[in-house]
């Protein structure tokens, strides 16, 4: 091998790698957590224990998924997601900014604030002892139903 070949080959491959990382790995979008490492980290938490009742949202006795959205979700993909994440017996509560319990739960769960500073789009999982076990922003939650299943399966 000629002595200059590795330098030429490495330069070309590094140029491709730089292009992939800079152009294809997107920075956080408006609905994402400004700290990418904290979004969908897959780690169970021993978070705070919540009250039993938040303006009509009852916690305890079963695993509850609290989904935060900016408007009521709808459509076939949503119906499928809903069926997928509740098929193991977990309850699902959808909270939009108009919901009376929204702000109190956002505060109690320490929901992260997205890049655009608006209401969160993501979810939290509270176990049957009312302990917060998972909190994340996830604007793409509809394509990540299995992640919710892993978390609810682990805490049930």
């Amino acid at each position: 091998m000629r002595w200059w070949v590795p330098a030429i080959a490495a330069t070309a491959l590094l140029a491709v790698l730089i292009a992939v990382v800079v152009l294809l790995v997107r920075p956080p979008g408006p609905l994402d957590d400004p700290r990418p490492a904290f979004q969908r980290d897959g780690l169970l938490r021993d978070g705070p224990v919540l009250d039993t009742d938040f303006e009509g949202v009852e916690l305890g006795d079963r695993t509850v998924i609290l989904l935060f959205e900016r408007s009521e979700p709808e459509g076939g993909e949503w119906e499928q997601w809903q069926a997928d994440v509740t098929d193991d017996g977990a309850d699902l509560v959808v909270l939009t900014p108009n919901d009376p319990a929204h702000d109190r739960l956002v505060s109690a769960l320490h929901m992260p604030v997205p890049v655009d500073g608006g209401p969160p789009v993501g979810y939290a999982v509270v176990d049957s002892e009312r302990q917060v076990r998972y909190v994340t922003l996830d604007p793409q939650y509809l394509v990540n139903a299995y992640e919710v299943d892993v978390i609810t399966g682990a805490v049930s």
Partner: peptide, 24 residues
């Protein structure tokens, strides 16, 4: 994040390429 890892990777690969070039 990834930009920092990219920079470290470029330095590491470049260091190896320099050593390999000198060896060749």
């Amino acid at each position: 994040g990834d930009k920092a890892w990219l920079l470290i990777a470029i330095v590491a690969v470049s260091a190896y390429v320099v050593l390999l070039t000198r060896w060749l």
